[in-house]
Each structure stands twice: as structure tokens, then as C-alpha cells.
Amino acid sequence: MTRPDPARIVALVGNPRAGSRTLGAAASLAGTLAAHLETAEPVLVDLATLAPALHVQPRTTELDAALAAVAGADLLVVATPVHKASFTGLLKSFLDLYGPDGLAGVTAVPLVVSATPAHALVGEVHLRPVLVELGATVPTRTLSVLDTDLLDLGPAVDRWWVRAERPLRRAVGSSAPAGDLVEVAR
């Protein structure tokens, strides 16, 4: 099944530092996904730039635009560094602004950056349940990378993509490239 229009990819970054390495990793993963799925350039939402607006009423137009972009994504990369063996409070504060089905129809890909392999399951144990509770579909395993992987994220993404491609293509309604169809037919 081919989509009538290209999938909208958004990268949501929960690192409290503006322009962080987590932002770079999210942009890289979202760009790679856009290339693989032949979609438009991804939109980046860096929560560090919106942090002051998260607890202000009435909400700012910038925060409303970010909330709408994330909820309107076909494919959402949710990136966070590990903070106290979980995802950041900044990301939690942003996600708390949605109701129970606020991310219904969104396919999410958790991306977790940590300093140690001991935190490899943070995305699966802590972030995935929150995304599912908000109505998102999470068809793949979390892409967990170490700080050292950020020097060259390509190999980690390539290893992850081998298992993630089929479920992601199904979830966003993207047809497989012609070469992949030949392999399936054999």
C-alpha cells in the first residue's frame, strides 16, 4: 500500500540543553528515516527552546505549534538523554499536555542516548508506556545509543533499521523499495 502523500516526520527532543547532542542524534535519525521512506524533510522540535513556556498560561503560540506538529506527525522520533535512569522531566512535562489519545494515529520511534549500556532499556520500560498511553503506536524497539555512538551514529542506525524497516513501513503505509520486493518474492 502506498500513501497518497509523503509521511510527515517530526523529531521531538527532550534534552534541556538547546542544540544538544541528543538533538543532533534525533535530526540524524529523522533524516535517515526520511531518506529511507522517501518523505519530506523532518521537522525538529527542540523542547529546550520551549521550556519556559511549558508552565505558563495561556500557552504561547510557539508551544501550541509544537504540540500540533507532534500530534500531526505520521512518524515521530522521540529523543531523550537518560536522566536518573529514565527520560527527562522536560519531555514528561511536554507529553503531559496531551490528553489520553493526544497522539492517536502517530507512529513513534523512541531514541534514547545514555552514557552506559546499563540504561539500554530506558526507552522500553519508561518511554514506550507513556507514548502508548497517549495513543501512539510504537511498532519497533527503542533505538538506544551510547554517548560514544554519537560520533558516528550511522552504524547504530543501520543495525536498528534492519529490524525496524518492515514494521515502520507497515505502520506509516510506505511501500517497500523495489529491491526489497524482489527479495520477498524469492
Rank of each mutant, 00 (worst) to 15 (best):
L67Y: 06
G105A: 13
V109S: 00
A53H: 10
A11T: 01
F87A: 07
V113S: 04
A176G: 07
A51D: 14
L127T: 04
L50S: 05
D74K: 01
L54H: 15
Q57H: 14
R186D: 08
R186Y: 15
P4E: 10
S174T: 13
K84G: 14
E133V: 01
G72A: 11
L33G: 00
P155S: 12
V10D: 00
V184I: 09
D180W: 15
H55S: 11
T142P: 00
L33S: 02
L97K: 14
R166F: 07
A73L: 04
A73I: 03
A26N: 03
R166N: 10
A18S: 06
D64N: 08
A104V: 08
G31N: 08
S93H: 15
W161R: 08
V125M: 08
G72C: 09
T88V: 15
L153H: 08
V109A: 03
A18G: 07
P177Y: 11
T80Q: 03
P117L: 11
G31H: 02
T116P: 02
D101A: 11
L131K: 00
T142S: 03
T88L: 06
V109L: 05
G179E: 12
L29A: 02
D5V: 15
L111H: 01
A65N: 12
D101P: 04
L75C: 02
P110N: 06
P16R: 05
L37R: 02
L63P: 04
A85M: 11
S144N: 07
V130P: 01
L44T: 10
A30K: 01
V145E: 02
G135Q: 02
R166K: 09
V184W: 12
R59F: 09
V172W: 03
R8H: 09
G179V: 14
P81Q: 06
L103C: 07
G135W: 01
S20C: 07
P155D: 14
P58M: 11
L44H: 12
A34S: 08
V172F: 03
R166Y: 15
A185R: 12
V106I: 13
D96V: 15
A73M: 08
G135M: 02
G154F: 09
A185I: 12
P6R: 05
R141Q: 13
L151K: 14
L146M: 15
I9S: 00
